[in-house]
Design a protein around this nucleic acid. Sequence first.
RNA 1: CGGGCAGUGGCGCAGCUUGGUAGCGCACCUGCUUUGGGAGCAGGGGGUCGCCGGUUCGAAUCCGGCCUGCCCGACCA
Length: 563
Amino acid sequence: MRMSSLLLRTLRDDPADTDSAGYALLVRGGYVRRLASGVYTFLPLGLRVLHRIEAVVRRELDRAGMQELLMPALSPIELWEQSGRAARFGTDALPALTVDGRGGTYVLGPTHEEVVTVTVGQEVESYRQLPVTVYQIQSKFRDEARPRYGLVRTKELVMCDAYSFDANPEGMAATYENAVAAYLRIFEAVELAVTPVVAQSGAIGGDVNHEFMVPSPIGEDHFASCAACGYHANTEAAERRAPAARTVGDGPAMEAVATPGVGAIDEVVAFFGDVSAPETVKAMAATTGTGDIVVVCVRGDREVRLPHGWDLLDDAALAAHPHLHKGAIGPAGLAPHGIAVVADAELVALGGPFVAGGNAPETHVRGLVFGRDVTPDQVGSFVVVEAGDGCPNCGSPLELIRSVEAAHTFQLGLQYTQKMPGSTFLDENGEQVPMWMGCYGIGVSRLMGVLAEAHHDDQGLTWPAAIAPYDLHLVALGANKNPAVADAADALCARLEDQGFSVLYDDRDVSPGVKFADADLIGAPIRLVLGAKGLDRGVVEWRRRRTGDEGECALEGPFDALA
RNA sequence: CGGGCAGUGGCGCAGCUUGGUAGCGCACCUGCUUUGGGAGCAGGGGGUCGCCGGUUCGAAUCCGGCCUGCCCGACCA
């Protein structure tokens, strides 16, 4: 490709609204342009990178036995009503609704579980057709309240999503392992360090699932990591080992204190004056997966982490409850009302005395001691882990690592196939049963943003060879004054392309400094320079973008050094 | 969704306080010189100053509303 005709304009300065180095370079290098907040155009150079990432994804998924198909980006709202997700997402997260002229409502899909379940369900009638895994590379739509970091967090994104269908749970688990292995090979091929972490699922649901986290300064998530034993978990799922138990004396008896207008922990601390947040109990009412109401207690300075499937009671539910009083919920005295107390192990280990909600309007208690005044019905890890907490496996201090979620895999089980029509098959016994499903998503456009952030230096991008827009960046120096150089560079470019290299050929009439700076900015793995000096000696100079290693090779080849 | 800041040629910015011919750098076009790390000189093109309304003889500038963008925060009883 001749740069003189490429739709490309490089910028000398960072645009004002770039919030990360990688994104700034993608804009300066002429890869992408923002059309609106979180909405991007891929210019020719950027599209080449996107296509190369897609090629890696396709290669590995095809190799893993998956089959590519393409589903529509637009789907009727009815599908989302059947699965129950129209209500679950709500208008906040599924706003991508559009209405046609006759009143039909469609969703610009954020993901494709409903569509794929119906699609595969239509084709599969028998266990003999299973297992099957399909994937697509498609545009998705998310109502990102706050797009950031260029391609990393956007409203419209290119995503590869795969969906597996098995006849039984054992098959689903085996297929899942196969898909995870394929995903790991993708990250290896694009040269991104990734850590698969156990995660708690969001709106997609399901039991076993992993997030593929790429440590990065532009990450918006953290995962807990234990250097000693290799434990990894998303902060939504991470547990910790409770501190060692402490021997507790009896202390003064628990007493109730009127606390008008006091609710939040900082208000409690301010009201009492002689207690700090760690000497209080934070208690929150929640419903468990089975619908029971429980009160979850943690030390006052910690955040509550609810197990998967549990939900906090909202204000309305709280107001309607006869025994729970917003601002004054605590562990003591709930047993007679049939409300279970769930306590973080640290509270039990410390014992007390604590200040806690008194379970009466505008009342707290002080001097509460676990084991004396309260015996929790369940004890476990119910806090969001913080750096330094003990690893649940080995007790070593946990680290929190900032990272970007680049992929997510789930074992969905029967969650969708039980709800969507036609997604059953006839098993060996002639019974009509639902398929066991898994899904696997990897953010292709996000990956491009993460790659730019991971692979750059002060001069520009330093793409991994597998996804660089061009293999070689050929700079012809002085070609406009020296026809011999121009002819030689033309011929060299053609020869390199014949040998299978993709070549970005800088034939522009600009100064050498501009050409070198643009080559560094664009970031192809190897730069070739041909000028009058080299031509006289029959050689072209090469230089590796990342290492700065230099050398020469004969104009006629062989070009082994460039491979 | 709450709070803060900002919208002026393609990009980055000044001008606004104190109303009166819209400016600078980069980029772009023409010519000459130059050519191994973002060249020089000369000439030139390009802007409804986010939108709507108000005040005024006159608004980029003052006032009101709206839109858009960026930053911070956002179920913790």
